[in-house]
Design a protein around this nucleic acid. Structure first.
Length: 347
DNA sequence: AATGGGGCCAACCGCCCGTCT
DNA sequence: AAGACGGGCGGTTGGCCCCAT
């Protein structure tokens, strides 16, 4: 079982295909179709096994193949699909017309894996690779951003109990741990418990939040290791905040575009996102938002904040209205962006 | 100019699964 | 029922090319 009988035949050619062999195979398939692959080599006059012919046709000779480098959209789609399908290359390829599983697999292994690593994402789990320094950084930045939030779980100086302290007894883990992983767990628990078990307890009038590297936010939403795993706080919310790359980018925000859309050179040490969930309204309503924070002179005293964006789960209203305020320049941050003539980051 | 290391990618290998006999 | 066979898939390899030294 398993091994093909043709593989035992010693006379068959292996290795790269010559133009003559390609022509023979192409002519044969154009005339007769491939039918049974095992009979193709003999009929086409090739010293190859059927499998080799099939592979050559599928990966190279097929007329509907799209050649050339992968587009950004294709790359995003591959990452998104990989997050759910894993290494099922054929299934991924089925979603990308003109691309073969082999091609996608090669692209993944040679390019995407490296890019994910650069973004601090584990290519297997699609979760962040957290180093100790990153954790320290997250905590530090969170403490800065508490100025903008009503209450943040990392804001001990806000004058009200941190949401974490209030809510922690409701959750199955019992030791307070400042690691990002625990915060991630915490926010997931907050969301899922609130959503699925809404009548059993009520959140206090506190938003909860956590911070994460901005680079993760510029990442395809469904593959986002933190945001993507929440059905409530997922691509729809994020897409409202950051229109996807395939859509036109609002002119008022042009200066931010490079920082959001380019995959490289985003200085995550200066640019952090903070996701928050406001559960002050209960009975199915919830707000969710994203803050962007930069610790430099451009936004000194300001954050690029869209934390007030609400996605009302009761009415299913899209969270567009607040976003519009940022886009039409009526808030200080968008004005600051309009006055910024150079891209925020040079590439 | 030589060389070696790394990246890329076409092709192979080994296995699984479904169908046929 | 069981073995043979063919198609398909994912992992791996090997060779070519480029670039740095």
């Amino acid at each position: 079982m398993g091994r093909h009988s043709c593989c035992y035949k010693q006379k068959l050619r292996k290795g790269l295909w010559s133009p003559e062999e390609d022509e023979k195979l192409l002519n044969h398939i154009h005339k007769y179709g491939h039918g049974c692959w095992s009979s193709v080599p003999k009929q086409a006059g090739l010293q190859r096994c059927g499998k080799s012919c099939r592979l050559r046709w599928i990966n190279y000779l097929r007329p509907d193949l799209k050649r050339g480098t992968f587009s950004q959209e294709e790359e995003d789609l591959i990452i998104e699909l990989h997050a759910t399908l894993g290494n099922r290359w054929s299934q991924i390829a089925a979603q990308l017309p003109g691309r073969t599983d082999n091609e996608i697999k090669n692209f993944w292994n040679s390019s995407i894996k490296k890019r994910l690593k650069q973004r601090g994402i584990d290519h297997n789990t699609h979760k962040p690779i957290i180093s100790e320094s990153e954790e320290d950084k997250a905590t530090t930045i969170s403490n800065v951003t508490c100025d903008y939030d009503e209450l943040n779980i990392f804001s001990p100086n806000s004058g009200t109990p941190a949401a974490y302290d209030v809510l922690q007894p409701h959750f199955p883990f019992d030791s307070r741990n400042s690691s990002l992983l625990s915060r991630e767990l915490f926010i997931n628990q907050t969301l899922s418990t609130n959503h699925e078990n809404s009548s059993s307890w009520q959140l206090p009038n506190n938003p909860t939040g956590f911070s994460f590297p901005f680079s993760q936010l510029s990442y395809p939403e469904s593959a986002n290791p933190i945001l993507g795993m929440n059905s409530e706080f997922n691509c729809n919310t994020i897409s409202t905040v950051i229109p996807s790359a395939s859509r036109s980018f609002p002119s008022t925000m042009n200066n931010l575009k490079p920082a959001i859309y380019e995959n490289t050179a985003i200085d995550t040490s200066q640019f952090w996102g903070s996701a928050s969930v406001n559960s002050s309204k209960f009975a199915g309503e919830r707000g969710a938002g994203i803050d962007f924070k930069r610790n430099d002179s451009i936004f000194e005293g300001n954050s690029f904040s869209v934390s007030d964006i609400m996605q009302d789960k009761g009415t299913q209203e899209p969270a567009d209205s607040k976003w519009s305020e940022y886009l039409d320049g009526s808030c200080p941050v968008s004005a600051a962006l309009q006055n910024q003539t150079e891209p925020l980051y040079g590439f």
